[in-house]
Amino acid sequence: MIRLNQLVATYTTVRGTVKAVDGVDLEIPSGNIVGIAGESGCGKTTLLKVIYGDLVYPLALDSGGVDYVFADDDRQEVTTETIQQYWFKRISYIPQSSMSSLNPVVKIRKQFVDFLEPKANKEETLDRVRQFIRQLDLPAEALDSYPHQLSGGMRQRMMVALATFFQPDIILADEPTTALDVVVQKGILLLLVRLQRQMQNTVLFVSHDMGVHYQISHRMLIMYAAKAVEFGESAEVFSAPLHPYTRMLIDSLPNIGDDHMRQGVSGRPPSLWDDLRGCRFAARCPLATQRCRDEEPAFIEHRPNHFAACHYAGDELPKVEPSA
């Protein structure tokens, strides 16, 4: 379980500070794939960075904190300040630009073990890595190559191998497949799902692709303008979403055999620099009332384990005729 307590994270810029994660408060149960979706700039990457404890300038944790609920060797509680010692051992990260995340002039083998303690037995570890990557459909020689000698898909598999080899409790994956073609993408996702099932880790998986989320995520977290707006079991979020924004995202999914254009998500999210009052989605919401514009909705449990931040959560949307 990971508990996020009223997280507020800010970036310091020349214009001042901006809250890229603004009061996210939820509990992520262990052993799940949690899909995170939302438009570009809504704070998905920032949320992952905070959970990972990668709080370097200009990013800073303003208030709140993360409970990882695994104790360290001294039985001390692990916090965002002390999680760094567990990087790639108990928590790992596949970054957004993972295609170019391997050093082009160093053999992959070295990059697999260069973060281990100097006294670690690297040769023995590498032998196990060789065994392990074979399960991932990677040839053992791939370890002795330089990144440019591998295809994009293989490099991506290597990143997955790196992130999973030490069997971490938590894996953070930020759009791990966006740069790949659909077939390769599917292979990587299935691999990730398979490894998660074997190891039972908690995977936080960011993607813009609601179709992918539908296929692999056990739970869904929808973010909008630095806030969590909906969180619940995937099946329920997809079949009976509580937040109108979630509904818009789902409606933008094409169905095969559909002969008219799906409704896109019209409008844009507000700028985080503006003075934001009320519900941040109000300007684009078909259900919005004066109350939405004045009063910020709380993020509450409307159904068991299904949270949303909407005054009219679950209410029927007015029917919109699809434009032909």
Binding site: D54, D114, F115
Partner: peptide, 12 residues
């Protein structure tokens, strides 16, 4: 560069 950022994230 992404590979340097990633090295930091690995804890090198």
């Amino acid at each position: 560069e992404p590979y340097v950022v990633f090295a930091r994230l690995k804890g090198v």
